[in-house]
Nucleic acid binder design. Structure first.
Lengths: 214, 214
DNA sequence: CCACACTTAAGTCAAGCGACTGATTTAAAT
DNA sequence: ATTTAAATCAGTCGCTTGACTTAAGTGTGG
């Protein structure tokens, strides 16, 4: 058993290098603008088919990148859920939605590429489903949404769905935009991911509590 | 003068066919997943270089598509600006931001592809600038933002910028999401673009008026 | 100690790409 | 009627792509 482990270490190192290189190149140049060959090369692999060997298709590689980060976000969200318990404050639940994502980005070595990567994948018609699957697979996320629904003001169901989508889009694309600004060294409204999260939470809570035109 | 016009009619017809085909293919399969050859073919052109002849690079084609729609949105926004005059109601100005875009989508023959196209272009690192340029070139948009700033509650500058970005992202990606749902024939929270605009305006106003955590 | 499975390297292949070329069609201008 | 130039067509070019094959290296389990 430990026998296999050692051999797998080398393969895992290569897999990791490929994942890191792919995430970076995808975020910087676009998922479809980067070929598997370029990823292999950037990961220091002589074999132009290294991506194919370790992951399969580009879609599989995208899924692997998404999953890797999703696991970390999941861990952070579970911890936060334990803290807020069964709070009835809407803000707490919005925070449970927002904070883990931005905390994860804060923990990553900078510069980060994950947010831009996610935004691209979610926007691409062929890859969209991959990212959606990976997100919905999170038990912590489901628990958050449930807890959130419990303490939310009465809203028509269609408005509820609509605003959920708004919150989702805001988190995703505001993170991507901030990450892009950091990478380009342009000014950002907030000086840290933590502050950016606070601003996001303010906005999303306001969005949820807004009166509904009938 | 009318001499040239007629000859140009044929070219314009071809240009139009290419624009329409490109917009559709880009939205459905992704901008980078579609080659210029495929666009030419889908536009009924025997020449595999038709895109190159009429537009140049793919980026130029993307810009042409964006500009075409931006002009129509501009017209709708100018009309709405005339209606609201110098209102001091925040909601009027948010409507001036939102309504023209969704009205434009409502006026297009369905199914539409423009919103998904825009979302992709804005999210792609290489194309992002194109779309940003085309948007910022709009005088009506600038006037809207100015009128908006005039009647907005006092906010720290960084929060102001931040919430502007949130509103922008919401409009773009909620439209794209609704368009995708319509294309896939899945359920949408709202039954019309007009109602969707109302929901969006509700949310964005709430977002702007939300209290700021200090 | 050796045979083996796993990983990496190196190179091949057909297909598709953008860019380019020269010929042909079309209709306005002379 | 002839000329001219825009527009379209048909085909070629070098290059990159993903997929595939073959060979070499490496530590494990028998």
């Amino acid at each position: 058993m430990a026998a296999r482990a050692v051999r797998h270490e080398r393969a895992d190192a290569t897999r990791g290098a490929i994942l890191a290189a792919a995430e970076r190149l995808f975020a910087e140049r676009g998922v479809y603008a980067v070929s598997n060959r370029q990823v292999s090369e950037a990961a220091g692999q002589g074999n132009n088919a290294a991506v194919g060997y370790h992951f399969g298709t580009k879609a599989d590689l995208v899924r692997a990148i998404a999953r890797q980060h999703a696991e970390q976000v999941e861990r952070l969200r579970l911890r936060l859920l334990a803290e807020i318990g069964d709070s009835t404050d809407v803000r707490d639940w919005v925070a449970a939605l927002v904070r883990p994502v931005l905390e994860h980005l804060a923990e990553l070595p900078s510069p980060t590429w994950y947010a831009r990567f996610c935004a691209q994948v979610m926007t691409d018609p062929a890859l969209h489903e991959i990212m959606a699957d990976e997100s919905l697979a999170s038990p912590a996320l489901r628990r958050t949404v449930e807890g959130f629904n419990r303490c939310l003001p009465e809203l028509p169901i269609e408005v509820h769905i609509e605003r959920g989508a708004m919150a989702r889009n805001l988190i995703l694309h505001m993170c991507a935009e901030r990450e892009r600004a950091l990478a380009e060294n342009t000014t950002t409204p907030r000086s840290s991911w933590h502050d950016a999260a606070t601003g996001l939470i303010d906005g999303i809570v306001g969005l949820w509590l807004a009166p509904v035109t009938r």
